[in-house]
Each structure stands twice: as structure tokens, then as C-alpha cells.
Simulated assay, not measured.
Amino acid sequence: MVAEDMHIVRGALIALLQLEPDIEVVAEVASGDEILPVARATGAQVAVIDIDLPGKDGLTAAEELHEYLPDCRTLILTSLGRPGTLRRALAAKVSGFLLKDAPPDKLANAVRGVLAGRRMVDGDLALAAWDAADCPLTGREIDVLRLTAEGYETVEVAARLYLSAGTVRNYLTTVVAKLNARNRVDAIRIAKDSGWL
């Protein structure tokens, strides 16, 4: 199964995979919300998932597959070759992590590898992740920062996370301090550049 929201990219991925005699694409979806139900309905053995999808993002969808359909392996594709992104992917229990600018033959080999039960990770990115700093933010701080980055006001973030507006402001102040950022916008930039968001 291929999950990619950009039609041309999705078509190209499917065309590349269908060139392989031992790989059959059984489904394609354009949003993260479709991944679990379609994987269940088709019996997909491997889900090739873009990390940045509308609805549920690729990592959230991969976590759901791992929990509710553990026999379906997940291969995350991303254009963001950042160590923090790889760490988030591994924490989500994905089977593989591949950069979108990898040579085409790597895609088919990665699909075969994850199907065989191996972890398939871009070597250069794995080395960079080894040396990268850990995210200093807690899970709740990341949740608050992610919703803020999506454009929600403090009151809206508070309602979504069942917190008071004052608590959300305190979290954001702590995040700015932990990241040594100038303000919230700078904190969002730092977290995105590091692959923590």
C-alpha cells in the first residue's frame, strides 16, 4: 500500500514498485486517516507512508498500524533527513525510514527488507542520528508546541489538551527557555529543524 498525498509522487512510487516482479501495490491512499482501514481491508503486508500527510501524519498512522495491525510493516518516506525525525520514526516502531531522494532501487529493496522483518534505515541518516542531541522537550510540551505551530490560539490548545490557558502559556514559556529560543515562533522553527515536530 502506498500513502502519499501528492498525486504525481504517489503515481511515480506506484509505477516504480509495479516494475518489480515480486511486489504488488494493492492500494493507494492520500491521507493518514485512510491508512488503517484500507490496510485492514486489503491485507497489505507493507505500507509505504509519506511522513507528512493530511489528517493523521505518517508517524501517527504508522503507530496505529503497529498497534492494531502488527503484521503490516511500515516504511516511512520523507524529504526531511533530520536525525530527530528518524528518532521519532523509530520511537513509532516503524520498520524502515527512507529519504525521498534515494535511488529508485533502494525503495524496492527497502520494501523487501521490511517485509522480511528487517529494519531498513538510510545509513547516513542513521549515523547523523547517533550523534544528534536528544529532544529536551517532554511529550506534553511537544503536543502544546505542535498545536501552536498548527495555528491554534492558546485557548484552543488548552481545550484540545484539557488544560487551562495558563498552563498552556507556562508550557510555551518553558519550551522557549529549553530551546534557548527568542519566542514561540523561533521555538517552533528550532523544533522543526531538529525533527522534533
Rank of each mutant, 00 (worst) to 15 (best):
A47C: 01
A47S: 00
I49M: 13
I51E: 06
L53D: 02
G55W: 05
G58M: 13
L59V: 08
A61I: 10
A62M: 00
E64T: 07
E64I: 11
E67V: 12
E67K: 13
P70S: 06
D71L: 02
D71V: 05
C72P: 06
I76V: 15
L77S: 04
L80T: 10
G81I: 07
G81Q: 02
P83V: 03
P83Q: 08
G84A: 00
G84I: 01
T85G: 07
R88N: 03
R88V: 05
A92R: 14
S95A: 04
G96C: 08
F97M: 09
F97V: 08
A102W: 04
A102Y: 09
P104T: 12
L107A: 08
N109F: 06
A110G: 07
A110E: 07
V111D: 08
V111P: 08
R112D: 13
R112G: 11
G117Y: 04
G117M: 02
G117S: 00
R118L: 12
V121S: 10
G123I: 04
L125F: 14
A126S: 14
D134N: 04
C135W: 03
C135G: 09
C135R: 01
C135Q: 05
P136L: 00
P136M: 02
P136K: 01
T138R: 11
G139L: 08
I142D: 00
V144S: 05
R146K: 14
L147M: 10
L147V: 06
A149K: 02
G151R: 00
Y152H: 14
E153N: 08
A159R: 14
A159F: 10
R160F: 00
L163D: 14
S164Y: 02
A165W: 01
G166E: 15
V168A: 04
R169M: 05
N170R: 07
Y171F: 06
V175Q: 11
V175C: 07
V176K: 13
A177W: 06
N180S: 10
N180P: 01
A181I: 09
A181R: 13
R182L: 07
R182V: 03
V185Q: 15
A187C: 12
A187P: 09
R189E: 14
A191W: 02
A191H: 04
K192S: 10
D193N: 11
